[in-house]
Amino acid sequence: MNNILNQIGIENYIFLSVLLFCIGVFGVLYRRNAIIVFMSIEIMLNAVNLLFVAFSTYHQDAEGQVFVFFSMAVAAAEVAVGLAILVSVFRNIGSIDIANLKNLKG
């Protein structure tokens, strides 16, 4: 096998992406600022993307990378919509602390 995986083993990629994912999860759980929550979600997404690319190379199959493109495109769109929502939330309420957003209370 003549590629990057010979130098850095696949398991390192897996560890890294799990680490990134966990950081994302904890960010989502602990931070109250909506933008940071958003960033944490992006980190989780990118952790997955990283894994996709790594396995794609590992399996010598380009399909994984195609998926990453999709996922990046979707993520970009999501950020656009999400940020737009946050902006309008901020305009209305004056805060983007998720603890204050309790209108969904049953």
Binding site: R32, I98, A99, L101, K102, L104, K105, G106
Partner: peptide, 12 residues
């Protein structure tokens, strides 16, 4: 409906 506290953190 009591389960639905509205707290996003809890939902997450």
């Amino acid at each position: 409906k009591k389960l639905q506290t509205g707290s996003i953190g809890l939902y997450l």
